[in-house]
Design a binder for these strands. Structure first.
Lengths: 262, 262
DNA sequence: GAGTGGTCTAGACCACTGT
DNA sequence: CAGTGGTCTAGACCACTCC
């Protein structure tokens, strides 16, 4: 015989999947569900927790339990990399007109980039390995959030790293007041004579840590996508690394691979 | 004042992050934790559930609660697509020698592909849109699981679709007994004169449904990566679509984007 | 059999939302 | 204020693992 809380959860899940309970609808109160199934309230709460962990429902203290609405998805595509590379050689005036984020996500200029912090950091083991330098090497670090204007929750947390000694020739790159860099990183790297050859992106997913949940305003029942982007120049050196944390329930990534013709 | 279960969870999480409790270590019994914090057992269980949802711990009925070990990760890279394309034109004997999965994941031939089902299906709305055909169009459907030999849990659930009318010219493609297709899909498409131009992969992440959790043997506190791969031929037609479900805690995806030289 | 986590009860009281 | 979910108690009994 199935457990009581599973039976309650199954009944509600079926109702949601069948559309008897649509997005935004309120579920019966916990006391009602308990009475209907002749179970205690904690048992009902156990059932609701299952559905919450699956991302199907959302609880609102004092108001009730609701079927979750799908959130607006943001598309992130690797076509942006070639676009940014082309853009890097355009006149500065043209570059200032449009930001890279809008193009990458398909959204308009309502997007905002908040510059949160800028400074130096020492390479930890993972960064040192990726850059191919010694642990403890000094890096330039930028940390920022990307936010969709009509919502409060950011849709990306980004930490971006450069090797300080490599970029020291251009003082603008070390000058905090020059933020945000007009034309993006590729344009700035060009001032150092650096041309990018390829970009590697590693993607994993996991449930959010409490810190990630708070920063991305993630409700229980969502996942986090972690992306590490490594840019290599034409000498095959790793010149820039970005760690990006994305909310899984509102991010869609599109990678296009072009194949050589026969 | 912080809630009791949060304080207990914080204490344990700190101990794990600091390394006082390492991977595989057993946590104190729930009754012990309750006594130490002068709280009831359900309160302690609430704290443990938090950590479980974060993927930090794993409960084993009758044995105890343990700090989770990171699972062996499987790397999936888009370099495989070019590799498979090159392979498609090699002699059949050579193609039979190695499977595509081994190369794609970096694992050896211990991998197994279980063919679970093979048949026809009608295009639902999402597939019809992606293929650019009418809803209800007949498709050839293959459903299979990829498993790592030394573990019981599969690391991928795959549903692969072709348009039946497009592949009908080659009876081998409709013949179940010819499975697994020697040389992979690209090799078979070549027999129809179809050459692939590019591959699009869309990636999202979400918490597992009960069905996914069961099939992939996912413990609570893991995410699922969903990947839809669309292959386009040189006439820009979508010729093959695969929906791949991957366990988030053991999958790493690597996408390399090559940029045009200046 | 001893020890562990899993399920469940029947309540109490608190905190938040809306009227 | 009434109604909702959030936290917590003090126990009971079951199911599983290991010795």
């Amino acid at each position: 015989m199935a457990k009581a809380y599973e039976r309650i959860a199954d009944e509600l899940r079926d109702a949601i999947r069948a559309g008897q309970l649509g997005p935004g609808d309120r579920l019966p109160a916990e006391t009602d569900l308990a009475a209907r199934h002749r179970r205690s309230v904690p048992t009902v709460r156990e059932a609701l927790r299952l559905l919450q962990d699956e991302g199907l429902i959302e609880k609102q203290h004092g108001r009730g339990t609701f079927v979750r609405k799908p959130r607006t998805r943001v598309l992130r595509t690797n076509l942006r990399h070639q676009w940014e590379k082309n853009r890097a050689r355009e006149p500065e005036q043209e570059r200032l007109r449009t930001g890279a984020t809008e193009h990458a996500t398909g959204l308009q200029v309502n997007d905002l980039v908040f510059h949160a912090s800028y400074g130096e950091a020492k390479a930890d083991k993972s960064l040192a390995e990726a850059f191919g330098v010694a642990e403890g090497t000094t890096l330039v670090e930028r940390v920022y959030r990307t936010r969709y204007a009509v919502e409060t929750a950011p849709f990306a947390l980004v930490s971006s790293y450069l090797i300080r000694d490599m970029v020291a020739e251009n003082p603008d790159l070390l000058d905090e007041t020059k933020e945000p860099w007009p034309g993006g990183t590729q344009s700035q790297l060009l001032t150092l004579g650096i041309e990018l050859d390829r970009i590697e992106e590693r993607v994993t997913a996991h449930p959010p840590t409490p810190e990630e949940a708070e920063e991305l305003e993630l409700p229980p029942g969502t996942s986090v996508i972690v992306l590490r982007k490594i840019s290599y120049d034409t000498d095959n050196r790793a010149v820039e690394i970005s760690d990006v944390t994305l909310p899984g329930d509102r991010t869609e990534m599109l990678f296009t691979t072009h194949l050589e013709r026969w």
